[in-house]
């Protein structure tokens, strides 16, 4: 590993974990297989403190201003935002579909909840994703163990609180195994109220 270790600077507030920003954009001509996904995803940078986070985040385009089929990912350092990663392969994600215009605000709020360790599920959270699509935008939070219902319920309840979701918001959980099987992140999800 030739990348240098990222640590908090003097006077900065350390985060519980280091996090890495990633960006991906699907080129319409290519099929969405694993290989092309890995080719289309780029690391933006890693942060170890609250201040380093703001410095990097403030330079990024707001997700609501992105066009086309693109995603921002913020994952714990060392975890690739891919279903096949060791930390993700037994995991899954909560999905919240957002109407256009809400993505930037919800993205910031879910990030702040993750960086501030608001979910209280130990090591379970892997990262968060905002997916910009044509009709709607989608927010997801990935965790390590899809079968751990105590963890997934706690993540769902924390999401409702930190995002201030209306009680009737539909939240869907999809295991990465199911995503691999149907080669889709958001299709055929089980609806949970």
């Amino acid at each position: 590993n030739r990348r240098k270790t990222i640590t908090p600077g003097p006077g900065e507030h350390p985060l519980q974990y280091n996090y890495t920003f990633w960006y991906s954009r699907r080129t319409p001509s290519r099929p969405a297989n694993t290989q092309s996904y890995e080719q289309n995803i780029r690391q933006i940078g890693t942060v170890a403190s609250v201040e380093q986070f703001w410095k990097l985040y403030s330079h990024l385009v707001r997700p609501g201003d992105l066009t086309g089929h693109s995603d921002f990912h913020l994952f714990k350092e060392g975890i690739k935002p891919m279903w096949e990663d060791e930390a993700n392969k037994s995991g899954g994600k909560w999905i919240i579909r957002l109407r256009k215009g809400l993505a930037s605000r919800f993205w910031e709020n879910i990030i702040l909840a993750m960086l501030g360790e608001q979910f209280m599920v130990g090591e379970e959270v892997c990262g968060v994703v905002v997916s910009i699509r044509f009709q709607e935008d989608i927010l997801s939070i990935w965790n390590k163990t899809a079968s751990d219902q105590v963890t997934t319920s706690r993540i769902r309840d924390t999401l409702r609180r930190v995002l201030n979701l209306p009680p009737n918001t539909i939240m869907e959980y999809k295991t990465h195994n199911d995503s691999l099987k149907d080669n889709s992140s958001f299709r055929n999800t089980k609806i949970t109220l």
């Binding site: 600077g9 350390p14 201040e51 703001w54 403030s58 702040l112 360790e117 930190v162």
Partner: peptide, 21 residues
């Protein structure tokens, strides 16, 4: 071990710190 927990307000306040620019 101890966890480093920050609430939303604290994190937003840090945004205006000179270190965050």
């Amino acid at each position: 071990g101890t966890r480093i927990i920050y609430d939303r307000k604290f994190l937003l306040d840090c945004r205006s710190s000179p270190l965050a620019h």
